[in-house]
């Protein structure tokens, strides 16, 4: 019989590797019996969904962040330098 502690490890590992047949069925049985671990599994799954979504969310979530004027200036200069290297390779 798996303990909740064992089950929590398997829930996590299941996100990173394929569980063995035995692990999978042991976990499934435990989850069937255990509400705490079912909720735990849903929490872990939700964390993953939220983080993988954060690509699309990036815009709204840090929407008030933008490149500072100084950074813009610096990058602009670096790009200009790069451009001039290209047009005058001997320079």
């Amino acid at each position: 019989m798996l303990t909740c502690k064992d089950a929590s490890h398997l829930v996590s590992h299941g996100q990173d590797r394929a569980l063995s047949f035995r692990e999978r069925w042991g976990l499934r049985f435990h989850l069937w019996m255990c509400g705490n671990c079912r909720r735990f599994e849903r929490q872990i799954a939700l964390m993953r969904r939220l983080l993988r979504q954060s690509d699309q969310r990036a815009e709204t979530e840090v929407a008030d962040h933008a490149l500072s004027a100084e950074a813009r200036e610096r990058i602009s200069q670096a790009l200009a330098e790069q451009q001039s290297h290209r047009s005058k390779p001997s320079a």
Partner: peptide, 8 residues
């Protein structure tokens, strides 16, 4: 794209 890249 500068600010979008920055946020990313």
């Amino acid at each position: 794209h500068g600010s979008a890249l920055y946020r990313f």
